[in-house]
Each structure stands twice: as structure tokens, then as C-alpha cells.
């Protein structure tokens, strides 16, 4: 039997995900057991029709992106979304609300992660995906070589939030209080939860697919691995969480104006909450509908 064919299809992306594949020997070993028919930089050529498996990297922003993604969904038996951009939008997804007119003829109306266009076989989030995610992806690709295909979408990220096993424990998890809102440059300490220090850390809503690398380095989570699966809009959820613990012991003293002053320190809530997930935000959907465009929602 002939080896199955594989296309690795970069949409709008930064290239780091590609690099992460190149650098993973085990994953490369599996990938090269396929007949690679398309992978810019590795196997040059046109994206043909007969594809058995596809790995899609990046967000769909240009018309060509959408066409390529649609084609892969149509043709390939196994469609892998590799990297946060393809699953949630990622950094290039921040262009979701930039009108096409400002970008040029080649662009579509909005940016959409290809994962929402149809039902993919595998979701492998991460910016770029971590070693454990890549390992599980290699296993799935191996199995597919044997003719085994997942019967429903497989999520390779961690289903738990960063808080679950965070190295920075709150002193008492029943009494977390954000004393106010602070920026990282104002100084962080490595002996307690960032939230308790007033640092806006997206850990509570973010999937722990990343080994807490940033937190170990003294940086709060910005959400790069995407939300914990099952949350309908992580940004809005996060507002609920922050609203619960911000100055929770001083509410009656500072009253509404005091709380508002503190919240005004969040200058760019959109950037904070949707740095990697903007195309999937409910408000993006609403904003697009209001412009007469189809909402870029889930499913």
C-alpha cells in the first residue's frame, strides 16, 4: 500500500509553529513516514486535491486561507488544527475586527480560526504547542498510518486551568483578594498567587497546556494556550472572576468610585482578555453582525 499523503498548510501565522514541528524529532519521524505532498519550505508545490491528512497552522484571514482550509476539510480524512491561531485565532486573529477595506483585496471580511469552519479531527492548541501536545499528536498521526481515525474531535490541550497545578499558590485559596491592580514592572514576588499581588493573570481561565513556563519566569499568564475547553467565552468569564475578588475586603470602604478607579487601570480589556481568542469572542460576533457580516461564532 502506498504511504498516505500529508499536507502541512500554513495560513496566516508567524512561523513559530512550523519551527516547533521541525525541532521535534519524534514528530518529524512520524511526519516523514507520510508522503508529504505540500509543506512550504519543505516540499514545494501546489496544494493538490488528493490529500489523506492535513495539518493546518495559522488563522484564516486571506481569501486564500479560507479556500485552503475549506479544501483540506473537504479532501483530507484527518484534519489537525496545530497551534493556538488555528484553534482560537492567536495573535494574527487580533485583526478580526479590522475591515477588509483597510487590508486589501486579498483579504476576507474577518479572521477566523479554521477550527470553527467545520469539524476538525484534532485540536492541538499552544503558542506553539508544547512537547506533551506534540507527543500526543505524533501518536494520533501514527495511528492514522495504521488506518485508525478518531471518531470525534480530539482535544490535545490540557483540560485543566493553570490554577490547578500552579507553582504560585495563594496563601489561602478560600480568601484570595486582589488588593488592587498592578503591572508587572511594578514588581512581582514569587511566593504567592499573582492575583493576590494584583497582577492580572489569565491562569484561571487558561488551559494548562504550557507547563506554566511564563509563571515560572515571573510573568503572568496571557492566555496563549487558549481557554479551558467548555467555557463559552473565557474573556467574559474572567471578568466575572476578577469582579469577584478585586478589593473584595474593601468594597464598602472604597465604594463604586474607588472600584471604578481601580478598574480604570485596565486600559485595554480587549487586549487583556482576547489576546489569543479575539475571533471567538462573543462581542466580536456581535460587532461583525452589526456591520452586516456573518458572526464568526463557535461550531
Amino acid at each position: 500500500m502506498e504511504k498516505p499523503s500529508l499536507a502541512i498548510v500554513p495560513l496566516t501565522c508567524c512561523g513559530a509553529c512550523m519551527q516547533s514541528i521541525y525541532e521535534d524529532r519524534e514528530l518529524m519521524k512520524t511526519i516523514t513516514r507520510y508522503r508529504i505532498i505540500y509543506w512550504p519550505g519543505y516540499a514545494e508545490g501546489e496544494l493538490g486535491d488528493a490529500v489523506d491528512a492535513a495539518i493546518i497552522v495559522g488563522v484564516a484571514r486571506t481569501r486564500r486561507d479560507y479556500e485552503a482550509a475549506e479544501k483540506m476539510y473537504r479532501e483530507a480524512g484527518l484534519v489537525v488544527m496545530y497551534g493556538t491561531c488555528s484553534v482560537y485565532g492567536g495573535i494574527p486573529g487580533l485583526t478580526a475586527l479590522v475591515p477588509r477595506e483597510e487590508l486589501g483585496e486579498d483579504y476576507a471580511d474577518t479572521a477566523k480560526p479554521p477550527a470553527v469552519l467545520r469539524q476538525p479531527s484534532v485540536l492541538a492548541p499552544g503558542c506553539p504547542p508544547s512537547a506533551s501536545v506534540r507527543k500526543r499528536l505524533a501518536e494520533i498521526l501514527e495511528a492514522y498510518l495504521r488506518g485508525e481515525k478518531p471518531d470525534k474531535t480530539v482535544f490535545l490541550g490540557n483540560t485543566e486551568s493553570l490554577c490547578r497545578n500552579c507553582p504560585l499558590r495563594p496563601r489561602d485559596p478560600g480568601r484570595i483578594e486582589m488588593p488592587g491592580i498592578k503591572r508587572v514592572y511594578e514588581g512581582v514576588s514569587m511566593d504567592k498567587c499573582f492575583l493576590e499581588q494584583g497582577i492580572l493573570c489569565l491562569g484561571p481561565v487558561t488551559s494548562a497546556s504550557c507547563n506554566h513556563d511564563c509563571i515560572r519566569m515571573g510573568l503572568p499568564c496571557t492566555g496563549c494556550a487558549g481557554p479551558v475547553p467548555g467555557i463559552d467565552d473565557a474573556g467574559l468569564r474572567y471578568i466575572g472572576a476578577i469582579g469577584s475578588i478585586l478589593m473584595v475586603k474593601r468594597e464598602r470602604q472604597v465604594m463604586f468610585p474607588g472600584l471604578a478607579r481601580e478598574l480604570d487601570k485596565i486600559h485595554d480589556p480587549m487586549g487583556l482578555l482576547y489576546k489569543y481568542t479575539l475571533p471567538r469572542a462573543k462581542l466580536t460576533q456581535l460587532a461583525l453582525i452589526r456591520r452586516g457580516l456573518a458572526g464568526g461564532g463557535e461550531k
Partner: peptide
Amino acid sequence: FKAFKRMYLLKKLMAQFG
């Protein structure tokens, strides 16, 4: 107070989305 904080931040966010 909880409702105020949540809605205040939501309103700021909405403005960014137009």
C-alpha cells in the same frame, strides 16, 4: 459590588468592540 465591578469592566470592553 460584585455586579458593579463586572458590569463596569464589561462596559469598557463593549466600547472597544464598538
